[in-house]
């Protein structure tokens, strides 16, 4: 594949898109891992949500 005289700009565009998309994916994945960790931590310490407790005892 011959990209012609302006290959650097074409490659740079694709690199920009890869960087932006990777940043978005990375941010979302890291955020998901962080929220999961906090939730597990809270559940381990016995903190429950109102919806879960309503099934057990009266509020």
């Amino acid at each position: 594949m011959n990209l012609g005289p302006h290959a650097i700009f074409i490659i740079a565009s694709y690199v920009v898109v890869v960087v932006v998309v990777t940043a978005l994916i990375g941010w979302i994945a890291a955020d998901y891992a962080a929220q999961q960790r906090i939730l597990r931590n809270l559940e381990q310490r016995g903190v429950t949500r109102r919806s879960q407790r309503a099934k057990g005892d009266a509020p």
């Binding site: 998901y32 809270l42 310490r45 903190v47 949500r49």
Partner: peptide
């Protein structure tokens, strides 16, 4: 795909928030 995943994060974040408030 990103939107659904980000919405899941946001729901979890709010769940964390409400659990902390309960605590």
């Amino acid at each position: 795909t990103l939107h659904f995943a980000a919405m899941r994060n946001e729901i979890l974040r709010r769940r964390v928030r409400s659990m902390r408030m309960m605590q």
